[in-house]
Structure formats: structure tokens, C-alpha cells
Design a protein around this nucleic acid. Sequence first.
RNA 1: GGGAGCGUGCCGGAAUCGGUAGACGGACUCGACUCAAAAUCGAGCGCCUUCGGGCAUGUGGGUUCGAGUCCCACCGCUCCCACCA
Length: 880
Amino acid sequence: MSEPSRYEPAAIEARWQRRWQELRLDATPADSDGRPPFYALSMFPYPSGTLHMGHVRNYVITDVIARLQRLRGHAVLHPMGWDGFGLPAENAAIERGSDPAEWTDRNIAQMRAQLQRLGLSIDWEREVATCHADYYRWTQWLFLQFLDAGLAYRGEALVNWDPVDQTVLANEQVDGEGRSWRSGALVEKRRLRQWFLRITAYAGELLDDLPKLEGWPERVRTMQANWIGRSTGAELQFPLLDADGQPSGEHLTVFTTRPETVYGASYVVLAPEHGLVASLTSADRRQNVTAFIDLVGRQSEQERTAEDRPKRGVPIGAHVRNPASGEVIPLWIADYVLADYGTGVVMGVPAHDQRDFLFARQYELPVRQVIIPEGSDEHAFEGGAWLENGVMIHSGPYDGLASPEAKQRIVADAEAAGWGRARLQYRLRDWLISRQRYWGCPIPVIHCPSCGVVPVPEDQLPVRLPTGLRLEGRGGSPLAKLEDWVAVPCPECGAAARRETDTMDTFMCSSWYYLRYADAHNDSLPFERAAVDRWLPVDQYVGGIEHAILHLLYSRFFTRVLRDRGLLGFDEPFARLLTQGMVQAITYRNPHTGRYVAPADVVDANDPRDPVDGQRLEVSFDKMSKSKHNGVDPGAVIERYGADTARMFILFKAPPEKDLEWEDADVEGQFRFLQRIWRLVEAAQARGLSLAAAGVEGDAAAVELTEPERELRRAVHTAIQEVSADLLGSLQCNTAVSELMKLANAMATHLEAVGEPVAREALRSLLLLLAPFAPHLAEELWQRLHGHTSDAPQADGAAFESVHRQRWPQLDEAALRRDTIPLVIQVKGKVRGSLEVPADCDAATLERLALASEVAERWLEGRPPRRVIVVPGKLVNLVP
RNA sequence: GGGAGCGUGCCGGAAUCGGUAGACGGACUCGACUCAAAAUCGAGCGCCUUCGGGCAUGUGGGUUCGAGUCCCACCGCUCCCACCA
């Protein structure tokens, strides 16, 4: 026998990747394929040029699912593409004078090569890039569908302005601290005319359908529900009085979630930005009001909305009549009222709203209690508003009613009397999609002085992004300065007109890419309906939690609009969603200087010191980032250990949805495990075992088995059962890998002692179960066991029997059965011993055996138990 | 303030329905092999113990023959929303 060979992943992986590619093993089967379709999808990356561990984790999880589903007999669509538009390309252009298109394409090529080294079973024929004209043409086409449906509009609003990126942002793109999701800059509010998509028209459906998304994490559904934020309440109209106190015929409409407190409204407040403030303000108040508005205008968004901030306001010298009580009450403006929620006008009910209470305290406005706690006529609030339900008082005909009942009646009566109506209010705002930047999809409309906004005719799409610009990063959209590009005749009347120079939010491009994969080369439509209806909804979507609201909400919206346009036939784009956790790495920080030290510069991991000043370093696990010098390069890991080890490690180290701590020692551990499998197969080969001559799968079951054979078969079929359950159920890749380890352990123990049929079954099963996780090693060992050496993989012309083209192993329930099982004996719920008993004993027999056992004798001291609980197959509990 | 999730050995993490807590891996300790080291193989590895056992899944109660799992209260951490009327 020759020297045992070593497991050298580099050569193996390159060879099989080439071979699989030649044979187009990962091609998506034709639509006519009889197998049931399965769509496995990863969130596509921004082509930054470098693959990081977060990407690796994302795509490896999806790849395991895709490979498993192929083995299980599905026709699998597993595509990849590029979220190609965006600011980094443009910023690189500004800093280095590069061309964003070239920069992006170069990055795509680089990242594609990095991805391919991971051995992902991606169908690269369906690759898309949102920044290529054959894609963005259809993004524009879809925009025109929105326009035609009345769901895209240009409107003036207070919008978020990112002073660093010099563009506006959607609400979803500003984080909880009021910072831009991209630049991290504090956003400013500006009143601008911009393009919006009317996502609010679908707010109700987007919210109501969330419970149907059973395959989504609860967390994501809750986040979306919070974001959409429905409030149930009413709009009430307060008649305006003129300077003489007579009804002017006009009224102010407020939104309230507590219409039952209307008798307690002692003032009405408008947002300072409200459009009617100027005309309602009396002459003698004008100066104060203007000064106040000015003051509020200078506050940042942060200052304005901080909850603990004192509420400020001024009366504007006008009055309204409380529509319920008839009382004349003053109009105020105040900084705690938001212009863009509800109607921008609030009724002040100090007794029953904490904000109104504080405001009334400050300005000595009357506090009128209209609800008291049940069974009490006491004042229910001391130093704060009474927010609970109770019994109505001081509310005319509603006195004595329970407040929920009064709520319904007041709304009904107000509606009948014409001064109110029930109303749902959403927190969700329309989606601001225009961006004053160059590297995005041009909005395909033309502004004509006489025809207004005119869509670019379909046959003139795409509106191509002009190339060869000098980008400076200042002074508004670069496109606006291109007179040649901007000046066009109006498509309707032919008069001189101007192109829209804003580009689209890149989230527009990513809101439909999953549809394009189903029909990636269609050049007459974005996609054929039959193709998307066949593949979608996506069976399993995998991506980061950071898109819980952004991309995932936008995509749900897009899908519904396209459904209503008849372009597709389903409601939800993603049936199952897995949000994978972050990949974190060990991070060293000098607590004195605040500087981060790269792990490579730390000499002794047990006593980490800053090489500069010898300061003891703080150790933590943090998200990998350049600034923390804690990044681990996937390329380097693959080079050292191979893609299979990287894949196995990342799957095993933590459950997919949890954060994962990258640790080199554990990577070594995974490499050792794959080496064990290598040696296991090698030892089997040395024994003359081969799969080439293997008979049918049931072979091993047919013969009379020895005890080790039965044990090994039990291990094999336990692994088949557990790995299948882990992957098909809640995607527990980590426990699936541990089941593979258990099987390998059992094989190391028993393989030498078993006959050929059982050994072959074990080897075959191990490699098939391993195939989704470590596809290269599984293929190499599979081929070797079929008599194809690595130097001469296969005779030309012979059919290539890849491990990835086999069927997932069949579970043989009979192999799991045992003759005897350990019966646990408990006394009063505590384990006191166990007894080997025949597996098929009935409850009465188990009870008898337990009572006769030494354990019973010892612990019961001769007294018969008061009670005996028998759990067949598991335990007997004796209760004295 | 509202909502969601989570607390298990030294560490990552296992534990269908309430039924032997700590699978699997890492780290560590000891042993074999080696001139030596690495690799490999074997053993040990929650805490206490008078070696009978006792105590252990954030804390305190409860339900149950039996609780990591169910219920109540509390403590701590993470995330989302938040002057949203």
C-alpha cells in the first residue's frame, strides 16, 4: 500500500469547481422539468470589491439549502446578482477620477471570483446587475407602471437631507438616532419638491398580511408592524371663529385616538409648520408667533423630538369652538406637534394626555377631567394625566358611560352630526425615492412647460445614464449640469422640455431583482408572468436583519403593486425568511488611548498588551470593521484551510440567526474534522471498499447483522433523520453538522468491524449528508470510492456521476429500532438508576420490572409506592 | 414609555410533547507515540462531598409524580419603535 495521502483542499476545490462549471451542474432546470421548483435566494450584495465574512455566511447558508433541495429532487433556482448603483462608486469617482461604471464592473468581476471560490452552486447564467442598462431599463419601465397607477407622484414635503452625501433620504433610511443609514451624518429637515411612491396606499394590507408570514422571524414582523404603526381613532372638526367670535364657516380637523375625551379639550394646537398658521394668526400675536416659528426652525430634528424636552408654544390669537361642549377655546402652536403626522393639528386634553398635561401646566391652561376611575369620584390624577379607561363625567349625554362605550357613541354621533368620523392613521410615510446623485437609475420623465410631467415613452427606454462625466461631489445633481442630456423635446407636444435629473433610490432597483432572476434574459418585458408565477414566492430567502424594514418592506409593497397591475399572481415575495446573525471577531482596544490594536499585533493572547505603550487591552467580540482592525479576510481563510472548512466552521459555530464569533482555534477544529473524514475514507479504501460495485441502497438491511453492524446502521440512520430534520425544519445548520460529527465518530469506532454492505451504506450516507456542507470534499471522496483517482478523475465520455446529482439518502426506520432500551428509574422525580429492558415492553411490565429493581428496593425501603408513573420507552417514576 | 427576543459549564452551544440537563465542538489537564515538537490516538473535564449523596439552567414564588421547558413577580442584556396625539 502506498503512503497515505493528505487532505489538500486547494487542489481538490479548484479541480471540482472547474469540472462542475464545465458540466453546468448548477444550471437552473428548464421550466418543462417535471421536478417541483424550489427558489433559494440570498440578498444580493453591493459590489464593494471585497467579500467579507458576513457575505460568506449569507451565501453558504443559502447554498446548503439549495444543494439539499437538489438532492431531494427539486428543480432549484439559486441565482446571484449585484446591487450595482450607489454612492461608493460615485465617491470613488470624485476622489480618484474613476468611472463609476468601470469601477463597479471591476468590483463585480473581483467579487464574483471570490464567491466562486466558495463553491457556491449558483446559476451564473442568470446573474443580474442593477446598474446595467438591460436591467435598469426595466426598473424605469416599472416606475412608469407606478406613475400610470397614480402611485408615483411629485410633491413638496419636509424631507430628510443628508448633508454629507448631499441628497435626500427616505424615512426608512434614517436610523433611531436621526442619522443616515449610509453616511452616519445627522440628517436635516428641508422642505423640498421630490418624487414619492405611495406606499401608504398599501399600509393596511402590508400590516394585515404580516401574520400570514409564518416563515418569517417574529422579530421582523414586529419591526414592520411598528414601522407601519396603525392607530385607530377619529378625525374631529373644530369650527373656527372670526375676530368677533362668530363662526367663520371654516374648521380645523384634528386626529385623536381618544375621541371620548373631546369634552376635556381645552385648547387646540397646530404644528408650527402648519399651512394655516399664518392666516389664522391675529395681528397682535404675529410678532410672537413669527419669533416662535423661527426658534423651532432652528432646532435640529433631535432637539425637536426628544421626549423629555419641555414643551413650548404660543397662542396665535384665534379661537375655535369645541364641537362637543360648545366651549370657545384658544388656538396655539407648539413644538410638540408634528406637521406630518395625522392632520398636524391636535386637541389639547390635559387631563388625559401626558404631553397636553405638561403643556397645560406650563401655560396655565384649564385641565378638565372627563374620565374617572370606575367606582370612584376622586381626582384620578396627581401630577400626571389619567390615561386609563373609566367612567365618563362632565361629558353631557355621555356621563356615566364606560369610556370605551362612550368612545364608540361619540364617534357615531359626531359622524351623524357631521363634525367627525372614525379614522385609521398610519405612522408609515410615503417612500421618498428621488436622489440628487449621479450613479443611480434615471427617473424616466420629462418636464414640459405646457404638458407638465410627461413619462418617457416605453420605446425610448432605457433613459441611459450619460457616461464620461467629471464628478465633483458638490452643487446638486451632476446630471442637471449636462445641458445636452437635459434638454429634450416634449414627447407629447414637441416643445423644448427638460429631463428629470434626479435618480432613483437604489432600494427601487433591489425591490424587484428577485423577480428578474426568474426570467433574467427577457428583453421585451421585465419578466414573463408565467416564469415568476412558477418560481415565486421565494421558498427560502436569507439575508441580514438590517433590511427588516427597508428592503423587505419595499419588496412587499412592489409585489402588491405589480400584482394589482396584473404582472404577477401572488401577494408576498418571500415565503420563508432567515435573518442571519453578524460575524464578529475578537477586538482589542486600548482603554487609555481608545485605539484598536490588530490581533496580529497582539503577542500574547492570554495577556494582551498594546505594543506601543504596553497597556493591557480590553477584549471583546465586535462586528468586523476596518476601523477596529479586526477583519478576517475570507480569501486568506480559504487559502489556508479551503472553502469546505470555512463553510463547515461558519455553519457549525453558531445557529444561523445568532451572531457568530470568529475564532481561529475553532476553524482548526473544523479542518481536523474534515481530515478525519478523509482518513476514514482512506482507511476504507485501503481495506478494498468501493462504492463502484455497490448494490442497491437496501443492501445493508437485507443480511443478518452483527451487533456492531446494527450499531453502525443505527448511527447512519439517526444521522439521516437528524440532518434532514435540522435542515428542513428550522434550518439548524449547527446541529446538522454536529450530527455529521457523531456519525463520523461512530464510523471511526465501528467501520473496521463491519461487513462490506454495512460499511458501504455508511460511507455512501456520510458523503451524501456531507455534500451540501462540504461539496468539494464530498465529491472528491465520492469519486475516489467509485474508483476515479484525483489524477484521472474519469474516462472521457463516461457519464459523470457527481455526488451532487444523487438522491438524498432514504431513512430506514427499522435501522433505528433497538431490542433493549435503558429504562430510567426515578423516585419522586429524581433519577436513581436505570435498567436495560426489552424495547417492546408494555406499561404494566415496565412497572413490574421497575418495582423489582435494586433501585426500588433501596429507595422504597420495602414500602409500596403511593403512585407509579410509567412513560413507555423512557422512564418509570415511583412516588412513595 | 410601548413592543419583540434572550439569560444553561471556562467558552460556542445541545436538549420534539413537561420525562436521564450539558449532545457536538473549542479550550484546558493527564497519558500513549516522539530525541523533541506538531499531528494523531486514549482518558478526564458543572459545583460540593463525610463517596451514601447533596446542589445546579438569571432571582423568588407557583402548577406538576416530574420544570431549562408552563404560570406569576422581579433582575439583567440585546434589538426595534417612541412628544405619532
